[in-house]
Simulated scan of single mutants.
Amino acid sequence: MNLLEYKGYLGSVEAAIEDGILFGKLEFISALISYEGETVKALQTAFEAAVDDYLASCEAKGYEPELPCKGSFNVRVGHDLHLAAMLKAKELGISLNDFVRQTLNQALPLSH
């Protein structure tokens, strides 16, 4: 997956072959912020400008800008898996939240 990154924001990279342009949008926030360019360098520049414009707009309006992936999410896993996870967490003497966090850290080690 190709993503642009700038100031903690991530942006998609798509191509409109028939129009000869690259385009994308900020990912993992609800605001629709898009950008486009004719080259990869132009797309990166447009992406960074879109992030800067978004942050400036939020500041001007007194809004807190959305952060990609706020750090919490709800997962529907079904009764049996939920119960099994609760039992395992209890066996380990930790909360369900800590069990899920540890399991995700093992499955998806972060590079930074």
Results as ranks from 00 to 15, higher is better:
79 H>I: 07
17 I>E: 13
5 E>S: 07
97 N>M: 10
96 L>P: 02
73 F>K: 09
82 H>Q: 13
80 D>Q: 11
62 G>E: 08
93 G>S: 04
88 K>G: 07
92 L>K: 08
100 V>N: 09
68 P>N: 04
35 Y>L: 01
105 N>A: 05
96 L>K: 14
65 P>L: 06
85 A>W: 09
109 P>H: 10
10 L>S: 11
69 C>V: 13
4 L>P: 00
91 E>Y: 09
68 P>I: 07
112 H>N: 14
95 S>L: 06
80 D>C: 04
58 C>Q: 14
83 L>I: 15
60 A>R: 15
45 T>M: 02
55 L>N: 06
44 Q>E: 09
17 I>L: 14
10 L>R: 10
73 F>D: 13
50 A>I: 05
66 E>F: 05
70 K>G: 12
50 A>M: 10
49 A>L: 01
49 A>F: 01
107 A>E: 12
87 L>W: 04
41 K>M: 10
15 A>F: 06
76 R>V: 13
84 A>H: 13
3 L>K: 13
34 S>K: 03
100 V>D: 10
53 D>K: 05
88 K>A: 15
9 Y>I: 08
71 G>I: 02
3 L>M: 15
82 H>L: 11
28 F>P: 00
71 G>V: 04
80 D>F: 08
71 G>N: 05
17 I>Q: 12
19 D>H: 03
112 H>C: 03
16 A>Q: 06
93 G>H: 09
59 E>P: 13
43 L>V: 01
1 M>T: 13
93 G>E: 01
21 I>V: 15
70 K>N: 14
22 L>C: 12
29 I>R: 04
59 E>C: 05
98 D>Q: 14
38 E>M: 00
83 L>K: 11
92 L>D: 07
97 N>R: 13
32 L>M: 05
79 H>P: 03
104 L>R: 08
24 G>N: 04
70 K>W: 09
15 A>R: 14
97 N>E: 14
21 I>D: 08
56 A>S: 11
80 D>N: 14
84 A>G: 03
31 A>F: 09
54 Y>D: 02
28 F>S: 07
21 I>M: 12
62 G>T: 08
33 I>A: 02
43 L>E: 05
48 E>P: 00
101 R>E: 13
31 A>T: 11
15 A>S: 08
64 E>K: 01
66 E>G: 07
43 L>M: 10
35 Y>D: 09
76 R>G: 07
104 L>W: 14
84 A>C: 08
71 G>H: 03
40 V>F: 00
38 E>Q: 03
58 C>T: 06
46 A>N: 01
1 M>L: 11
74 N>M: 13
33 I>K: 04
67 L>V: 12
25 K>L: 05
37 G>Y: 04
19 D>K: 06
63 Y>E: 10
91 E>Q: 09
112 H>S: 10
94 I>T: 03
25 K>S: 14
40 V>Y: 00
31 A>G: 01
8 G>H: 03
92 L>S: 02
